[in-house]
Amino acid sequence: MSTQDQDKLEKAKAQLRKVKIFYIHLIGYCIVIGLLLYNLYIVAGPYKNNIISLNLSVMVAWTVFIIVHGLTVFKKRSIFKKNWEDRKREQYLEQEKEEHTFWE
């Protein structure tokens, strides 16, 4: 096996590890968010407002972290890929060209 193939294999293993860690993070997130939502449902007593605000702040912060983690792991898989951008650019150039030729 050549060094290039070995480098590609190592990169693939590293990317697979990142995806696996993200999914573990996502599972933990879903479990904890479910428990926090249940806690919001059953909370009562004199510290109800403090508990609710703490739970909501944890939910918001962790949601932001999971979104950022997902974006860093899947950054190469964007919705608007380079070939899509190129096609749209050509389409707009064609439209502009047609508009100019109509009046000339």
Rank of each mutant, 00 (worst) to 15 (best):
K97Y: 14
F74H: 11
R77V: 13
F74V: 12
S53F: 01
I52G: 04
L93V: 12
W103K: 07
H25N: 14
N55S: 12
H69E: 11
Y47I: 02
K48P: 07
V32D: 13
Y23V: 11
W62P: 07
A12M: 03
I21R: 06
L54C: 14
N55W: 03
V58L: 10
S53E: 07
E90Y: 09
V58Y: 08
D86S: 05
F65C: 10
V73A: 00
L16V: 09
G28I: 07
T3Q: 13
Y23F: 08
Q4G: 13
L71D: 11
D86R: 05
K13T: 02
T101Q: 00
Y23Q: 08
K13Q: 07
V68I: 10
N83E: 12
S2M: 12
G34N: 05
Y92L: 09
V43W: 13
S2G: 15
E94D: 12
K11G: 10
Y47M: 02
I67Q: 12
I27K: 03
K88H: 13
A14G: 06
I21V: 01
W62E: 01
G45W: 04
R77K: 08
F65Y: 06
R87M: 15
H69L: 06
F74D: 07
F74T: 07
D86G: 01
Q4R: 13
K82H: 04
F74Q: 14
Q91T: 06
Q4K: 12
E85F: 15
F22A: 07
R87H: 15
M59H: 06
N49Q: 06
N55A: 14
I24C: 04
I66N: 06
I33N: 05
C30G: 03
E85T: 14
T72Y: 05
V32C: 11
M59P: 03
W103L: 09
Q95F: 15
E94C: 11
T3M: 15
F80C: 14
I66G: 04
N83T: 11
Y92D: 12
Y23M: 05
T72C: 04
Q95Y: 15
I24Y: 08
P46V: 03
D7Q: 08
L37V: 03
V68Y: 07
Q6I: 09
L16Q: 12
N49C: 01
I21A: 03
I42D: 03
Y23N: 11
K48G: 02
K20P: 06
E98D: 12
V43E: 14
K75D: 10
S57F: 05
K13E: 00
V64T: 04
S78D: 10
L37Y: 02
I67N: 11
K76N: 15
V60Q: 08
A14L: 03
